[in-house]
């Protein structure tokens, strides 16, 4: 077994030993979708939304919620704790670079977020009859970029905060606006025109619109994909630039 496989295996075991993280990443978005789906008016076609049903808009929102939970809520305290408790330092005395530990955690959070997204889409289809994404490659691309920017934002938060405590505080402060941009309170499509345009410049606002367009069967706007990709790139660069190993 190669060293990186061993690291991934060990970190996977640790990952499944965190029931609270697993709940927020994998279970919560689907539970929330179910609760919203139980509101009768959300299941009715709505003239203000061009005949769409509210629950249809909430599928992409909860998909993004899974990304945000994983990348911004769950990931930063883990990375920050590894740094603060000298786990990275201990590993840096071995032939294996401590970066492999961070990479394993990022991969696992990414996989959990994708699994959660799949669950949201499946429950939307099975329980509430929400059609599967019409433009699947476009949907997957938007999903991938959304996940990437969420993980990158979490990594950047870890990079700029010196202690675990600070990471948790900054993480929560970032978490709520990101949920707003994703459209958790009001789906981006239901926002007034100006607000919708502004939100479109933020990572999850753009990703939310891209997911919606792909869900409806069209190829997502390159502007939306571009904004999401640009955020991901900037945040990754920031995380790499400012990350402190101890």
């Amino acid at each position: 077994m190669s060293a990186s496989t061993a690291v991934l295996k060990a970190e996977f075991r640790l990952f499944v030993r965190e029931p609270l993280s697993l709940f927020w990443i994998i279970v919560f978005p689907t539970v929330l979708l179910t609760i919203l789906g139980l509101i009768p008016s959300f299941r009715e076609p709505n003239a203000d939304l061009g005949g769409s049903r509210m629950i249809e808009l909430y599928v992409p929102v909860n998909v993004l919620l899974a990304m945000i939970m994983s990348g911004i809520q769950a990931l930063p305290p883990v990375l920050s704790g590894y740094r603060e408790r000298g786990i990275l330092r201990r590993m840096s005395t071995t032939p294996v670079r401590p970066a492999s530990l961070l990479a394993a955690q990022i991969v696992l959070h990414f996989a959990a977020a994708l699994g959660s997204a799949l669950l949201v889409v499946a429950v939307g289809r099975l329980a509430f009859g929400v059609a599967l994404p019409g433009q699947l490659p476009g949907y997957l691309l938007a999903l991938l970029l959304g996940a990437l920017s969420a993980l990158a934002l979490g990594a950047a938060v870890t990079a700029v905060t010196p202690t675990s405590k600070a990471t948790t505080v900054v993480g929560s402060a970032v978490f709520f606006p990101m949920m707003f941009f994703a459209g958790l309170w009001t789906p981006v499509q239901a926002m007034p025109g100006l607000l919708q345009r502004i939100v479109g410049y933020f990572p999850f606002g753009a990703a939310s619109q891209a997911l919606n367009q792909a869900a409806e069967g069209g190829w997502p706007d390159w502007t939306n994909l571009g904004v999401t990709a640009a955020w991901a790139a900037v945040l990754i660069a920031a995380a790499v630039r400012w990350f402190r190993w101890e």
Partner: peptide, 10 residues
């Protein structure tokens, strides 16, 4: 080293 731990649940 001093102050280098392991993952709590390992």
């Amino acid at each position: 080293l001093q102050e280098s731990e392991l993952q709590e649940k390992l």
